[in-house]
Structure formats: structure tokens, C-alpha cells
């Protein structure tokens, strides 16, 4: 497959503009930092009410929520939405019959989302209220970025199966719920914690909880392995589905 860097950049720039005209995206862009700020403020003022400082674990939860939103709502839903929209509006055909290759379209679609996801994770980290000194910044960005890429590839795969935006939303929902709720409630339920350690979002959340508890997070080969295996599995699944009939479902 031919990939021209200049065509990838052209498509990435266009997709970025397309995102800025997309309501779902704009809402996510406002809600993710917005919610993080509201929760931080809520917990801070709750602490003031009781006249004591809130433990950092609370702000770890705030950060985990924000990052989970980035990894799911933004990173999985948006590529699925963009791809299915291109099919619904017949613009994918137009691109593909204007010499755009599948690889160029794929990269051009996920690059802007990858970039926005990384920036948003940084924003959420800064505004969550968690003391940044407790966080190993490079490891934080390494794992969250791997998570974004996994989500993007998963989202593109969902997009192949969805014939329109409505279907993409419906198909993405179960993935969002599983990948978000299991890690979130893993601190409450031991059984969920057992499952969560095998899920890439679970490992990201585990990292954040460790930092906020002041425990050194060690990126064990097992944890890194889970992240890498899942990103590889997502790519393999995408390629398998893509090989059948490109971005079309049948």
C-alpha cells in the first residue's frame, strides 16, 4: 500500500477541521476538562467544609475519570463516527476514487485524534488537582498514549462495521462501558480488579491510583505486555476486518 506523507497531512488537516465542526466532538472537548474541574472543585470544597484537606487519592479519581473519558469517548467514538459519516455521506468513496489509499485515510483520520487526546490528557493531569510531583510524567504519557492509539484503532474497526453514524454510536457504547466502568469500579470490587488488570484502560487507571496513593508504580513486563498485546490485537483485528472489503462492511 502506498502512503504519501503529504496526502496523510492533507487528510489529517481536513479531519481536524471536520472535528471542529462536529457537535459530538465539541461537546466531548468541553465536557472532559469541564467535568474534571467541577469534580475537583466539589471535592476541594467538601474538604473545606470539614476543615481538612482531601487525600490525594480523591484527586487521583478525578484524574482517572478524565483520562478514561479521553481514552473512550474521544479515542474510540470519534474515529468510528468520522469513518461511518464518510460512508453515510458517500465521501469515503469520493476520497478512495481520488487516489487516497486506505493507509493514508487511516493515518489521516487518527492523527488529529491522537494529538488532541495527548493534549487533553495533559490538560486533565494539570487541572485534576493531583500533585504533579506524585506522577511520573513520561510513564503517564507513555501509557495513556498507548491507550489512545488502541482506542483509535478499535474505533476505526467499529467504523468498518457501522454503515452510518447512528450505528457507530450504538456499536461503540458497549466498548465504552466495559473499558470505562470496569477500571473505575475496580477499587470497590475485588472481582472487577481481577479483570481490570487485563484491560489496557485498567492498567492506566491502576497507574494513576498508585501515583495518587503515593505508591511507586512499577511498569512491570506484565503490565507493559498487556498494553502492547492489546494494541497489537487491535491492529491485527483492524487489518483482518479491513482486508475483507476495505472500510466497507460487505
Amino acid at each position: 500500500m502506498n502512503i504519501s506523507i503529504s496526502r496523510v497531512i492533507t487528510i489529517a488537516q481536513f479531519k481536524f477541521k471536520e472535528l471542529t465542526k462536529n457537535k459530538t466532538f465539541l461537546i466531548a472537548l468541553a465536557v472532559i476538562p469541564g467535568m474534571t474541574l467541577v469534580m475537583r472543585w466539589l471535592y476541594t470544597s467538601m474538604g473545606e467544609e470539614f476543615g481538612e484537606e482531601m487525600p490525594p487519592e480523591i484527586f487521583g479519581m478525578v484524574l482517572a475519570m478524565g483520562v478514561l473519558y479521553v481514552l473512550t469517548m474521544l479515542s474510540i467514538s470519534m474515529p468510528a463516527t468520522l469513518l461511518s459519516k464518510d460512508k453515510e455521506k458517500h465521501t469515503l468513496r469520493a476520497l478512495m476514487t481520488s487516489s487516497v489509499s486506505g493507509g493514508e485515510y487511516f493515518l489521516g483520520s487518527i492523527l488529529p485524534l491522537l494529538l488532541i487526546g495527548i493534549i487533553l490528557n495533559g490538560v486533565v493531569l494539570v487541572i485534576s488537582g493531583l500533585d504533579m510531583n506524585m506522577v511520573n510524567i513520561p510513564v503517564f504519557f507513555l501509557l495513556t498514549t498507548l491507550g489512545i492509539v488502541t482506542g483509535n484503532v478499535l474505533g476505526m474497526t467499529i467504523g468498518i462495521f457501522a454503515k452510518d453514524q447512528m450505528a457507530a454510536g450504538n456499536m461503540a457504547t458497549p466498548f465504552l462501558l466495559i473499558l470505562m466502568l470496569i477500571p473505575m469500579f475496580s477499587m470497590l470490587l475485588e472481582s472487577l480488579a481481577q479483570i481490570s488488570q487485563y484491560i489496557y484502560t485498567g492498567i492506566v487507571v491502576d497507574m494513576i491510583f498508585n501515583y495518587s496513593a503515593g505508591v511507586a508504580f512499577i511498569l512491570t513486563p506484565f503490565k507493559l505486555g498487556v498494553m502492547l498485546v492489546e494494541i497489537a490485537a487491535a491492529i491485527a483485528l483492524f487489518l483482518f476486518v479491513y482486508k475483507r472489503n476495505g472500510f466497507e462492511q460487505d
Binding site: R7, T10, I11, E18, K89, H90, T91, R93, A94, S98
Partner: peptide, 19 residues
Amino acid sequence: SGVYDEFSVYDNLALFASI
């Protein structure tokens, strides 16, 4: 043949001109 409804006539063509 589809067009990007939310983009202007010119922007639609500019995309394909670049491609």
C-alpha cells in the same frame, strides 16, 4: 457522489486539489 456538506464549495475542492 458525496460532498462534505458542512464545508464550503471551495474547501471541498481544495481538499481534492491537495490530494
